[in-house]
Design a protein around this nucleic acid. Structure first.
Lengths: 161, 161
DNA sequence: CCTCATCACTTTGAAAATCAAACCTAGATG
DNA sequence: CATCTAGGTTTGATTTTCAAAGTGATGAGG
């Protein structure tokens, strides 16, 4: 497992876990490849057909995702070819992508092309805090832990001198 | 509000709300711009500084996000310039981006550069089903509602014939 | 043994997107 | 009037993306 973590202060703009996450999975086709692996499709050809990505781009993305420790390439037991599988980070990413999919259902598509159910009813996602059980909403406070930044942007130590 | 919804069957690959969502907000800098607006930064210059995006790219993204109905451009009361604000879809997107940020905290960065708290304790996100209250995990079943596709990929009506 | 098919890529050459930097416009400031 | 600031747009070079063709390894059919 590679686990190429990024120091967010080396990225342009505000140091932020979202920016770092997008550095790993923000390029085109990356999340769709993870989606397919999550759906149980492990072969390169399946990923290519089901994402619609050009094969050279897909090959590059898969290489990156393996290097980032999100996918793992290993031999399929039933076949002579390798398959791509989710690591623990990849599993977690798959779950983190669900709210984005749900957002797409609600705001991005004319008609949702998939239905997510468990126990024979449709899943309606709610984000709650595991500590206090309350729904997470607008009362979340964000503190920057890196010096030089606050919510409004970079803080100048001496403004113009 | 523009509300450019996408018919997911017109996209390459599997018709999917995630692919549609990424069509709207998957390009570089788009989510970071939404993040900044969510943090209360509404001016173009702030968005440029805080995202680190080139101004031409940022201008293009903001135009797209406004056209997609995610941001709204309106006159600042305190200034003679316009500012960018979240629509209802943009608010919802901001919330959908949180799990991705949390994933980044855990898997993408060397050290989280921000801390999210409410009521003086750190937020730990848990996704639960609003219908039954159970945590959403692996027991989610996905059914495709469009013909020609299942979880494994495209279904051929007559295979080779 | 020879041909053909399948799978997983890689290479190629053209088109499109991205970038940093320079430039532009309109209104305030000195 | 000259300069400054904010909010972009334009420019020209670089990089990325794309579809399509090619490669090489394995196995099946005749």
């Amino acid at each position: 497992m590679a686990n190429h973590r990024i120091d967010p202060t080396t990225l342009p703009g505000r140091p932020c876990s979202l920016a770092s996450a997008l550095q790993l999975v923000g390029e085109r086709w990356a999340m769709l490849a993870v989606r397919e692996v999550m759906f149980g499709n492990h072969q390169f050809g399946q990923l290519a057909r089901n994402t619609g990505a050009p094969t050279d781009r897909l090959a590059a993305r898969l290489k990156d995702l393996v290097a980032a420790g999100i996918l793992e390439r290993r031999r399929e037991p039933t076949s002579r070819y390798d398959g791509y599988y989710l690591t623990e980070a990849g599993q977690a990413l798959g779950e983190a992508m669900q709210p984005l999919t749900r957002w797409g259902d609600r705001w991005a598509v004319t008609e949702p092309p998939m239905r997510a159910t468990h126990h024979d009813h449709q899943v309606v996602v709610r984000q709650v805090c595991a500590v206090c059980g309350e729904e997470i909403g607008a009362d979340v406070v964000r503190e920057m832990t890196v010096p030089g930044w606050d919510a409004a942007g970079p803080v100048d130590p001496q403004p113009t001198r």
